Amino acid sequence: MKLMSGNSNLPLVGDIAAYLGLPVTEVSVRRFADEEVFVEVLENVRGEDVFVVQSTSFPANDNLMELLICIDALRRASAKRITAVIPYFGYARQDRKPGPRTPISAKLVANLITVAGANRVLSVDLHAGQIQGFFDIPTDNLYAAPVIAADIQARFTGRSITVVSPDVGGVVRARSLAKRLDNAPLAIVDKRRERPGESEVMNIIGDVRGRFCILIDDIVDSAGTLCNAAAALKEAGAEDVVAYCTHGVLSGAAVARVETSALSELVITDSICATEEAETAAKLRILTIAPLLGEAIKRIADESSVSSLFD
């Protein structure tokens, strides 16, 4: 078994390697003068079970090409099995046609990864569960909920917790977390999105007065939805509001927006390599999912159950 990495999230790969007690396979990923990606695997991988860790986060296209070329290099080097470990699967929000003459880019990316030569895919909190069906190869979708629930129980035991979904589409995710927190009450923020990147909070479904509210979502991008939801919850009488999101995309002025918002704290995982601004922000905290990914990789290599991780 070998562990290999592109350049998108080297700290996470180092933590996974430490968990597994494995060295990271030596690989050279570099650019030509015209920004073409070139990959050279510097170790023998013939007949090996290789796991390539690469989030397709910003810059999404560069990181995606690195992943595809790494997979192709391994296939041509006669690796026995290649597993693409994609902690954050970019293009996942383009999982359907929102209008006429628009692409389903998540399916296109799935095709690219499969054709490049991947035999298996491992990801975390896919934006839409049906993306697993876009791949014609085995696909495991891990959940960060156990890591998030453990952190909440360690820090906020004794508080009157209500789990809040920032929109109707995230109710299943919120209900799953609420179940892990001893069946905590559930509330929903009814939101109407007027245009991409902007959201308007309409009302709160559920009683949050005097409650410690935990907003849960899979992706925080511009942070507009979370900040608006936090303000609405405070107006509805919430005692305090903390947000947990698996993937901290945090584009543009997102970090500054969080810092001046009604949120007491935003907790993200290291599925995406945090920027210096995010690491130093007062209201941001980062949880590691390296043990979760490391254990899943170990179980795949051993041909044992991955789903039992979440029992």
Rank of each mutant, 00 (worst) to 15 (best):
G47A: 12
N203W: 08
V171F: 02
K298Q: 15
A150Q: 14
F156E: 04
I297W: 03
H127W: 09
S271P: 08
D167F: 01
S199A: 15
G99F: 14
D218T: 08
G197K: 00
L42C: 01
A187K: 00
P23W: 05
I272C: 11
M65C: 09
I113H: 01
V85S: 07
R193W: 01
G294H: 11
L142G: 02
A79I: 03
L266S: 11
A238V: 01
A243W: 02
V85I: 06
S305W: 04
A178S: 12
P138N: 11
R101E: 11
I216H: 09
P291I: 05
M65Y: 07
D15C: 08
F212K: 05
T162Q: 13
R173P: 04
D72P: 02
T260G: 01
L284C: 02
A236R: 03
N228H: 14
T25M: 08
I214Q: 12
L226C: 11
R101C: 07
I214G: 13
A254H: 10
V201P: 03
I86P: 06
D217I: 06
T139P: 03
D218M: 08
V171G: 04
M4W: 02
D136Q: 15
D221L: 03
P185T: 00
I300W: 05
M65E: 10
I82E: 01
P11R: 14
D49L: 00
V242K: 03
L292F: 13
L126F: 06
I161K: 07
R180D: 04
K97F: 11
G169K: 00
I272A: 12
E277S: 04
N9S: 07
V27Q: 12
Q94F: 06
S123M: 03
D182E: 14
I104S: 13
V168M: 00
V147Q: 14
Q94Y: 05
H247W: 13
T225M: 10
G210V: 07
A77W: 01
P185F: 00
F89T: 05
S5K: 11
D207C: 02
T246E: 12
Q153V: 06
G252N: 15
E66F: 07
E277G: 01
D190G: 00
K298M: 11
S308L: 11
I161C: 04
I16C: 12
F156Q: 01
T246W: 09
I216C: 07
I300M: 12
I104H: 12
V201R: 01
V39I: 10
F135H: 06
S105L: 13
R120K: 08
V172I: 10
G252I: 03
V124L: 15
F51M: 10
R173G: 06
S307N: 09
S160Q: 15
L293I: 15
A262D: 11
A187G: 04
A187M: 01
L177M: 12
V267D: 06
S78Q: 02
E295M: 09
P87M: 02
G252T: 10
D240N: 11
Q132S: 08
